[in-house]
Amino acid sequence: MRILPARVRRVIGVLVAGLLTASLAAACGGDDGAGADSFTVGLLLPSRAVPRWEHSDKPLIEERLKELCPDCTMLYANAENDAARQRQQMISMITKGAGVLILDAADTRALRSSIQEARAADVPVIAYDRLAEGPISGYVSFDGGQVGRLQGEALLKAMGDQAHDRNVVMMNGDPRSPNAAWYRSGALSVLTGKVRIGRSYEIQGWSTENAHAHMSAAIAALGPERIGGVLAANDAIAAGVIAALKSAGVRPLPPITGQDADLDAVRRIVKGEQYMTVYKPFRAQATAAAAMAVALGRGEDVRDIARTNTDSPTTKRIPSVLLTPTAVTVGTIEQTLVKDGVYTVDEICVPELRAACEKAGLLR
């Protein structure tokens, strides 16, 4: 095969006193088009507090990148909920020659200047899951308003006729994430006027420990008998809520929502401790992000992939892929998570859950 020299692809930034200086990085390509270019994609995820980042998103993105561009390489970093660390990780990746970055920002505002620096270095940035501020080249996520609506609708259904007489505790996500406000708005669009919001908290870092502390405060303030349901923004928060309720001796547990379909949360749903979670098909999200990254790395238009646009506080008409989430309760685990290959029945139905799984129809 005759190898032709490819165009000079990217400027590699080196930060000096807060500024990036440029050098050139070259890529080479074959004569057969797809998969011929070789360049580096940087993947930056925000934390390990939410299991999906390491267990689902990272391997799925890496797998899809290799399928779309066999000669491409991937750099990976996790910010551990530290925006300053993520900024340094971005700089390091650009310095090492990353041609495209996929960024799930630990703090969507704090990373704005870093995204501007990436743009100055001719390195496009794809916002993954959370819409970061700055000159983003593409955005892949789920409809956050629908996530909140699914949670609110499930909570109303679970509370039944008692909904208007009981308090709901809102355990919202990290205020540094625009998704948290999006979820909350969607949930309130369903709950407002139908329940009484007894307490509302913002859970820094989506932390189980912080959720436990705030839920303990809500129990003390309201009294356990006056809590009719808990709108927990995700499964890590739900875990803290459930632990606090158990510690306070609350039986039976009120209905509790979640999000992300973490394996532990699915098992809690089977046990009857958590009422529902929101499943966001991670493979579709990872596939879209990888496709965007490869297109941008090859200098192609991502609008063939992104069929809608999203505005951030700083950038208008960002090419976007917004996927559809799905509510999961004990009766729908099999036709959603098991059917899609997220988990097997054996993974969910550990020995201590066999009786509960039989009751749920997962074991026959």
Results as ranks from 00 to 15, higher is better:
Pro135Trp: 11
Tyr139Asn: 08
Val140Gln: 06
Ser185Ile: 09
Ala132Glu: 02
Leu150Tyr: 07
Gln151Ile: 04
Glu202Val: 03
Asn167Met: 04
Pro178Cys: 10
Asn172Gln: 13
Ala213Gly: 00
Glu209Thr: 13
Asn210Cys: 00
Ser207Asn: 10
Glu202Cys: 04
Ala132Asn: 01
Thr208Gly: 01
Ala163Val: 03
Thr208Phe: 00
Trp182Ala: 13
Glu209Arg: 12
Glu133His: 06
Gly152Pro: 07
Leu191Ser: 04
Trp182Glu: 14
Val190Phe: 11
His214Val: 02
His164Lys: 15
Ile219Arg: 05
Ser216Trp: 00
Leu131His: 07
Gln146Leu: 13
Gly138Pro: 07
Ala218Glu: 01
Gly144Pro: 07
Ser207Asp: 14
Val140Lys: 07
Gln204Leu: 13
Trp206Thr: 02
Ser141Phe: 08
Ala220Glu: 14
Met170Val: 15
Arg166Met: 15
Asn179Tyr: 02
Asp161Met: 03
Leu188Ala: 10
Pro175Asn: 12
Thr208Gln: 14
Leu155Gly: 11
Ile203Pro: 07
Gly152Val: 07
Gly198Met: 03
Gly148Thr: 06
Asp174Glu: 13
Arg149Ile: 06
Arg199Trp: 00
Ile219Thr: 01
Arg149Leu: 08
Gly152His: 10
Gly145Asn: 10
Phe142Met: 12
Leu222Phe: 10
Gly160Cys: 11
His164Ile: 05
Gly193Met: 05
Tyr139Trp: 10
Glu133Gln: 15
Arg196Trp: 00
Thr208Asn: 06
Glu153Ser: 12
Gly148Asp: 09
Met170Glu: 13
